[in-house]
Nucleic acid binder design. Structure first.
Lengths: 207, 207
DNA sequence: ACGGACCCTAAGCGCTTGCTCAGGTTCGGG
DNA sequence: CCCGAACCTGAGCAAGCGCTTAGGGTCCGT
């Protein structure tokens, strides 16, 4: 597999961020934001983690908020990519839903540092940037809702409230970013598998 | 029903906080923390919402962190109370689990302002205060795990991974605080009902 | 050898932060 | 009518914030 110009959700995490100094700052910001939260993180802390002086940050980014926006934008793009890949993967609705949950959860667990920033620091974005991100989340919702809707029509699923169940499924997956811990007893793969099973039970017509 | 000295999860929200000036400040802090987050909220903002000068805050609380701790402590106590009431309510494991989810979710929806602070600003607490709160959350976990465990033993439930499913159930409920909106199309009762049904499907032995 | 593009830093500006403190207001009991 | 306790405010301090600016290395093509 080539490492150049990848747009998938996993490999070479921040490869598209250039030049290298800008990437180092962005990675440092992800770590700091995830650890302490956006508002509790200082620009001096970010620059320090990247091994630079506080002023260096402003050569590559106009403001601290722009850093958050870049992180949030790239993160949402990747999470959405993962979801859409599963949705377009073919198979029955159950197979596609299971794969969507499995990979979406795996992303939130494996990359829980990024995911935490992406999912929980949304309010710190400015008006314009936030609406841009909210649109991406609307699309995630649409992807899951479509799979569930198709499963219902095909008679595979029995779901009284499709929008409500969609909300619950996404909520369940997203919250993984909050509690997942690398020192915990479960690998991202195991959590993905567990959750895929639970979600299938939530929508299954019968067993 | 008397309004004096209540300790349940709903009525007379912050009645046990006295004197009245201290309660006004605490309510103002809950609103501010929920809206902007702990770190983005200034002591001037809190005092202003309570109609006092910045200095007044420090007559009733030693630090801004003490305010967060009081909120977090009381909130966790109430949420736990709601859970335990449902768990001790009698009936089959399915009935108790459904009631636990229903009331826990209802609490997180109805009082989502408080719940947001309680569930998402934990990291802003100091070392000692945080470990105190984490203990309360461990007890919430134990309550749900016990119900599910008993359901499995009674043959009512079929759950391959009890700790994992417990985690998922609680995660689902807690995340309600993040997305619930009073202008949304669902009442707290409706969300509670929906979620209770979904959780029962996750654990049911057969249908 | 040298000019200039690029990238970075030291220093610091103006402002806001959490918090303090001396002093004023209010009010019930004697 | 005065006292003392309870409660609150105006003014402000030291520290830390996001961000700016003047200037200095480094390395390229020529």
């Amino acid at each position: 597999m080539s490492t150049a110009e990848e747009t998938d959700g996993d490999s070479a995490p921040w490869a598209e961020v250039t030049p290298e100094a800008a990437r180092r700052l962005l990675v440092a910001a992800v770590d700091a934001f995830a650890e302490r939260g956006y508002h509790a993180t200082t620009t001096r802390d970010i620059a320090g983690r990247a091994g630079m002086s506080p002023a260096a940050l402003y050569i590559h980014y106009k403001t601290k908020e722009e850093l958050l926006h870049r992180i949030s934008r790239i993160g949402h793009d990747r999470a959405l990519f993962v979801l859409e890949a599963a949705a377009d993967g073919g198979g029955t609705a159950a197979e596609r839903l299971a794969e969507a949950v499995r990979s979406f959860v795996r992303w939130h667990a494996e990359r829980h540092t990024t995911a935490r920033v992406v999912q929980y620091e949304l309010d710190a974005l400015g008006e314009e940037h936030r609406t841009e991100i909210v649109e991406l989340r609307r699309r995630s919702d649409a992807v899951v809702r479509r799979i569930i809707g198709e499963g219902v029509q095909a008679g595979e699923f029995d779901v009284p409230d499709v929008p409500g169940t969609t909300l619950a499924v996404l909520s369940l997956c997203i919250d993984v970013a909050r509690w997942f811990n690398e020192q915990g007893s479960r690998t991202p793969d195991e959590v993905g598998e567990l959750y895929a099973g639970l979600v299938l039970r939530m929508v299954a017509a019968e067993r």
